[in-house]
Amino acid sequence: MKKILFSAITALMLFSCQNDQAESSDSNSNLNAVSRRGCASQQVFEAQLKADPTLALRMNEIENFTKKSILTNRLVNGKIEIPVVVNVLYRTTAQNISLAQIQSQIDVLNKDFNALNSDYNNVPALFSGVKANVGITFVLEQVIRKSTTKTQWGTNDAMKKTAQGGIAPTSPTTKLNLWSCVIGNDILGYAQFPGGPSSTDGVVIDYRFFGLSGAANAPFNLGRTGTHEVGHWMNLRHIWGDATCGSDLVSDTPTHNEENYGVPAYPHYSTCSGTPVEMTMNYMDYTNDNAMYMFTNGQKSRMAAIFTSGGPRAAFGI
């Protein structure tokens, strides 16, 4: 297992998931299959850093606070309930996702963050000692819908701004805001890291990959785009640390060469120092929805730290 490392650059990064298949902005493109995840995090990071250079200092403070909270074991006791507001921006009937599809995403989050997912027991014996029940629950509080003429929204947070035709977040310091829309540019979803502006805080998911039903498309039709992105919203990095043999700042995840795609055969060995078996089934890798099904205790501690008194999401805690 790797040592926890810190870099102000990686701490700044917002996280997003994209596929590598081109699609047109026309709604007919929604019939196209998406074969793999990818990442546009660097572009999102650079835009936010340019807009607010002080973000680096805030993220450094959050990282130091997180380390201290974990070391002192000053963590909340898993009694965190997250109210969720879902903002639906739609141009077509298909994009106006149903309440059932929205609730299915909430249900997936509750299962995945509480070790109730049916594939949790598929975790290999090698990792059974570190697999975690995060113990955070989610409750759908409100759905806000808005018709739009936009064919896609991009990653500049336009969907979160009323002046640009979007929907502003509702009480973002005490509620998790999710946006369902057509993102475009082959993006599945993206999240804002703790420490960013409250006016754009939350998670964006392309409507095709939101929850289990309706427009959700395989191989990303099990709601795990939401689980992955909410993990980022709770301060988790990608498991490969966004660099070759990089660090995700968690002590009990193995060092990965890079992201993994599809459904990797187990065991999949890293060529990094020590040649560890990679944890390809971790929610913070880039595997298909049916191939990711665990968080670790270290990731749990990292997520819990942001909800402690003085943490960036303390208003959600107890």
Rank of each mutant, 00 (worst) to 15 (best):
F45H: 09
M279G: 08
V44K: 05
N96L: 11
Y266S: 10
N288C: 07
G246M: 13
D112L: 01
T149P: 03
D112G: 02
Y190H: 12
G38V: 02
S199D: 14
L14S: 06
R36E: 14
S251W: 08
A216T: 15
K67I: 11
L49T: 04
R302I: 08
L12Q: 12
L116V: 03
V108A: 04
L49I: 05
Q152E: 11
L176G: 10
N64R: 06
P276Y: 02
F210G: 07
Y286C: 04
N185M: 04
S171V: 15
H238I: 01
L71M: 09
P276S: 04
Y90K: 01
A47T: 08
A168S: 15
Q48P: 01
S27N: 10
I136A: 03
H232P: 02
K2F: 03
N64D: 14
L176H: 05
F113C: 06
F316E: 10
V76D: 10
A51S: 11
T244Q: 08
V34S: 12
L249T: 08
V86A: 15
T255H: 10
E61R: 13
T155P: 02
M13G: 00
M234G: 06
I167L: 15
I9F: 08
L5S: 13
L57D: 14
I102K: 01
A168W: 05
P194D: 03
G231S: 01
S213N: 12
K2C: 00
V230R: 09
L49G: 10
S301L: 08
Q101M: 04
G78K: 04
T93S: 12
A265K: 15
R91F: 08
L222K: 15
F307I: 02
N77R: 06
N217T: 11
T151G: 14
Q21E: 15
I183K: 05
L71N: 13
K79L: 11
T148I: 09
N217M: 12
G154N: 09
Q21G: 12
G184E: 00
I183Y: 06
L236I: 07
I187E: 11
E46C: 13
G202M: 06
G184M: 04
K150T: 07
Y261K: 07
S41K: 00
M294A: 10
G202K: 01
A216R: 09
L222T: 02
F307S: 06
L126Q: 12
I187Q: 13
S128Q: 15
A314I: 07
W233N: 15
K150C: 05
L140H: 08
V263H: 12
A56R: 07
R313D: 01
I70G: 08
A215E: 12
V143F: 02
S29Q: 03
Y120G: 00
G165I: 10
Y207L: 03
W179T: 05
N60Q: 15
Q142R: 12
V203H: 06
N96H: 11
I144Q: 14
T296L: 04
G226N: 04
T244S: 02
N156W: 10
V250H: 01
T93F: 05
S29T: 01
Q192V: 10
N235I: 02
F210D: 06
S273T: 05
R91G: 12
F307Y: 00
V143D: 05
L31K: 09
K67Y: 05
N30E: 12
I80H: 07
R302A: 10
W179A: 06
